[in-house]
């Protein structure tokens, strides 16, 4: 681990200024991901700008939805009575992430920007990995890739995004508010998190010295039902092999009137099953027709030999999540 400068920002303007003044600086929030990356030499910023003192940790609730301050910890988000009442799928996702100790430190903003768990990226020494060392190649494509992506990957990178909360936020159509010296803008998660293309090292749409200030989570449609389902080998304290967040409208005849489905663990960002969402409208809440609709989105799935099973697991996870959200399980 290299020496670095440390700046404690007193507000978001100060943080943005401090970042802008140092091209090699990075913001640090809970540090639960960044410090590990520093210790393993995967990242070596010249300076850390500590943003935990910027006052961006509030959780607000209004008629249009929630505003989660970027620095709200995962524990804080999950404990908030308003969040529990309005967005149970988010609470389920947050509470399935990491461990209680980590959730006490980890922030919602940092969670969205955590980096992949691909073992080659995370290795104790630099192995060929285009995300870690641009141009060095991808070890996973021809190597160990059991947990790799089945959507949106390229030969340059097959890594997945590890966040649970991001998957729930994606299904909730959340937007991320970001701020830089140039002003404020909001981004959908699909805009914030980039697919690898041929520059997998460029993971987000954020500019240097641009901060996430909040996550805006619209109220779920009235009467909708939701669910977050996480599939993993270890019963706790493990990232998802595949996960699924569902927001569902169900009409009086037990037919689906509206569906939003996001899958986790299958791509470099939460993956919305757009075709399935369309195909599910009007479908009866039973396994066979739901599966037929879900499969529409998997026509585009592409697997490697070692993760081919994830296509079937992805389909089954989505079907189960839809049926569970709809109350048919």
């Amino acid at each position: 681990m290299r020496d670095f400068d440390y700046v404690r920002a007193t507000g978001s303007d100060h943080a943005i200024e401090a970042l802008a003044a140092r091209p090699g600086a990075r913001p640090v929030a809970g540090g639960t991901d960044l410090l590990t990356l520093l210790k393993d030499g995967i990242e070596a910023p010249e300076a850390l700008v500590d943003i935990t003192g910027t006052g961006l940790g509030a959780v607000e609730h209004g008629p249009d939805g929630l505003t989660l301050g970027a620095l709200a910890t995962l524990s804080r988000v999950a404990a908030d009575p308003a969040v529990r009442a309005s967005h149970p799928l988010l609470v389920q996702a947050v509470e399935s992430a990491a461990s209680p100790q980590l959730r006490n430190m980890a922030t919602i903003g940092g969670n969205l920007l955590q980096r992949t768990r691909c073992p080659y990226f995370r290795a104790e020494t630099a192995l060929p990995c285009n995300r870690r060392t641009p141009g060095s190649g991808c070890s996973a494509v021809d190597g160990e890739h059991r947990a790799a992506a089945i959507f949106g990957w390229t030969g340059h990178c097959v890594a997945t995004h590890p966040s649970d909360p991001a998957v729930a936020l994606s299904a909730a159509d959340a937007r991320v508010r970001v701020r830089s010296a140039g002003g404020e803008r909001t981004l959908a998660l699909d805009e914030l998190l980039r697919l690898p293309g041929d520059t997998p090292d460029r993971e987000t749409a954020l500019d240097h010295a641009e901060l996430i200030t909040a996550v805006e989570v619209p109220a779920l449609p009235a009467g909708s039902r939701s669910c977050y389902l996480k599939v993993r080998e270890r019963a706790s304290y493990e990232f998802a092999l595949v996960s699924c967040a569902v927001v569902l409208g169900v009409d009086g005849r037990k037919r689906i009137s509206q569906a939003r489905i996001a899958l986790g663990g299958v791509a470099a960002r939460p993956w919305r099953l757009v075709e399935a969402e369309r195909a599910l409208v009007g479908v009866e809440l039973t396994a066979v027709p739901v599966r037929a609709a879900v499969e529409r989105s998997f026509a585009a799935a592409e697997a490697l030999p070692g993760n081919a099973f994830k296509v079937e697991v992805g389909i089954r996870t989505a079907v189960r999540a839809v049926l569970t959200a709809g109350g048919a399980r």
Binding site: P119, R122, E124, S139, D142, E144, E233, R234, A235, S236
Partner: peptide
């Protein structure tokens, strides 16, 4: 749970940490 996978091209164990090498936790 427990398995150390070897990458035979690189000639190394793939995961050398307790995130990749899975030990049971209380919930298991």
């Amino acid at each position: 749970l427990e398995k150390s996978t070897t990458d035979h091209r690189l000639g190394r164990f793939v995961d050398k940490n307790l995130a990749g090498y899975r030990l049971p936790v209380n919930a298991d």
